[in-house]
Design a protein around this nucleic acid. Structure first.
Length: 496
RNA sequence: GGUCGCGUGGCCGAGUGGUUAGGCAGAGCUCUGCAAAAGCUUGUACGGCGGUUCGAAUCCGUCCGCGACCUCCA
């Protein structure tokens, strides 16, 4: 089952065989959210993607330390104003109040999507000392310079000394010389491509700390370098984030790590791609956006109905993390049906009893081959759509056995167990889906009991050919979003 | 303008130098009191034009279209 793992490495632009620095252990750092507003559905996709990666790494037996930060300082807007204090002024709240509010909201959303919490979730404001130390190291190594209390990273000197800057984001250093965008404090810098690692605070800047250079605050890119180094070491295995962070954030992070520690921080860089809606980038400015809450409530002009978090998650899993994914109402509707089909097949499967068979049939061979393929494809750069496709190939087999079309006698006892554990592992352990579909799955005794009673009454009516009563039960339940399914073995139910 | 990526059947979305992705939708059939669900069967494809090759949707070139990034961004 433990196939070799291959990862598409953004650093080399190649799919590479994964080899951890320390056998059996993985250090993974993922850039977390800036907590100055409600979490965006695009953020959710990124963190769902990395959750699946985290879960799979653990599933195949690694001990993983997953570090995902909370950015609560230093992330600048175009106006040069700190996002935290900007939000605070607008809402008349303390900056940390704003950070706290949206951090809690973020955690709630991550829980709703059933993602696992990271092993360490450090905050930028909790690591000011580490960041100041890193600035000092960069200065000591000759790659940082101070101007009027702010400290800048010397990208030109770094680029001349080592052929590193620009490698990750595929930027040529020459292009950096032609950068023309006009930004605040640009004149203080030796060169436009230099970036702040410590910023002197202006009078009205609320978030500020003492430092050897000025009362100020750390540059945005610094926190990730400082915290990844602190918790994972100077060199670790995987660094992840949305691909919009490649430049400048990740590129600058790499520069800082070189500047402070003289080495490249991560062996494998994983970048997730963007979520679009109706073929265009999501943007609040032109209304082409939807919030997680709107998806769950259906309260948006872009969708026709509500979609549960698990449907949205399943929809995301149908695309590879490295591809852009287009949210459309139709796409979500299709995902809903597919998700139900998978969960219902799983419910049937988990109830199946083996028939003590040890024969090797064609069906048996096919099931085993498909299972192996599913894991093999999941190990090929975490290809969730391919793994899902393999599970869907197995669904007709499960339904076929259940319907009596295929025979359980053709399935080896061991194979059935393997099939059960494969479905369970993928659905719950690896994809992190929850079952909000199949009746009885949530262990709600009262509901299950009532449903059993209703199904029993309807069955009596049907035996007596009292179609009026049986159809009334069926139609009324239908209105309550409960679907009855008459099969050979009796009637089951599920929620729509 | 620069850099990178993409263009697959009605829709979404994988993948590969020659062999079925998968989901949803469609068609036919089976089952069913009628349905639903389920099962079986089935059609439609790789942006245009060149090139490499025994063979390309898959490699190369070019054109067209789309998107992302270029110090707000997951």
């Amino acid at each position: 089952m433990k196939n070799d793992l291959y990862i598409q490495n953004s650093l080399t632009r190649q799919k590479e065989l994964f080899k951890p620095i320390n056998e059996g252990f993985i250090g993974m750092y993922v850039c977390g959210p800036t907590v100055y507003s409600d979490v965006h559905i695009g953020n959710c996709r990124t963190f769902v993607s990395f959750d699946v990666i985290y879960r799979y790494l653990k599933y195949i037996g690694y001990q993983v330390r997953y570090v995902r930060n909370i950015t609560d300082v230093g992330h600048l807007t175009d106006e040069g104003e700190d996002k935290m204090s900007k939000g605070a002024k607008l809402a008349k709240l303390e900056p940390m109040e704003v950070a706290q509010k949206y951090t809690v909201g973020f955690h709630d959303m991550m829980r709703i999507f059933n993602t696992l919490p990271p092993d360490i979730e450090p905050r930028a404001t909790g690591h000011i000392i580490e960041q100041i130390e890193m600035v000092q190291q960069i200065i000591d190594n000759g790659l940082g310079y101070e101007r009027n209390g702010s400290v800048y990273f010397d990208t030109i000197k770094f680029a001349k000394e080592q052929d590193v800057y620009g490698k990750l984001s595929g930027r040529k250093i020459d292009d950096l010389f032609t950068e023309t965008r006009d930004l605040k404090n640009q004149s203080e810098k030796n060169h436009p491509s230099d970036f702040a690692i410590w910023m002197k605070a202006s009078e009205d800047h609320i978030l500020r700390w003492n430092s050897p250079w000025s009362v100020g605050f750390p540059g945005w890119h610094l926190e990730c370098s400082a915290m990844s180094t602190k918790y994972l070491g100077k060199q670790f295995d995987i660094h992840g984030g949305g691909n919009d962070l490649k430049f400048p954030h990740h590129e600058n992070e790499v520069a800082q790590n070189h500047g402070a520690c003289g080495c490249h921080p991560a062996n494998y860089w994983i970048h997730t791609n963007m979520l679009e809606m109706n073929g265009r980038k999501m943007a609040k400015s032109d209304g082409n956006t939807i919030t997680p809450a709107q998806l769950f409530s259906g309260d948006s002009p872009h969708i026709s109905k509500a979609y549960s978090p698990m449907i949205v998650k399943f929809f995301m899993l149908q695309a590879h993390y490295g591809s852009t994914l287009d949210i459309t109402d139709k796409g979500l509707q299709d995902a809903e049906k597919g998700y139900h089909r998978l969960m219902e097949a799983n419910a049937l499967l988990q109830k199946m009893e083996a028939s003590d068979s040890d024969i090797t049939s064609e069906l048996d061979t096919e099931i085993n081959a498909t299972i192996d393929k599913a894991f093999q494809q999941m190990s090929d750069d975490f290809n969730t759509p391919m793994a899902l496709a393999r599970l869907f190939e197995l669904v007709p087999k499960i339904n076929g056995i259940s319907a009596g079309h295929l025979s359980m006698d053709d399935v080896n006892t061991d194979t059935l167990e393997k099939l059960k554990s494969t479905f369970h592992s993928f659905i719950y352990d690896i994809f992190g889906l929850l079952d909000d579909v199949v009746g009885g799955a949530n262990g709600n005794g009262v509901t299950d009991g009532l449903m059993e009673l209703i199904i029993d009454l309807r069955q009596n009516a049907r035996v007596n050919k009292d179609w009026g009563t049986s159809d009334k039960i069926r139609d009324t339940l239908q209105e309550l979003q409960i679907q009855l399914k008459d099969g050979k073995e009796g009637t089951t139910w599920s929620k729509n």
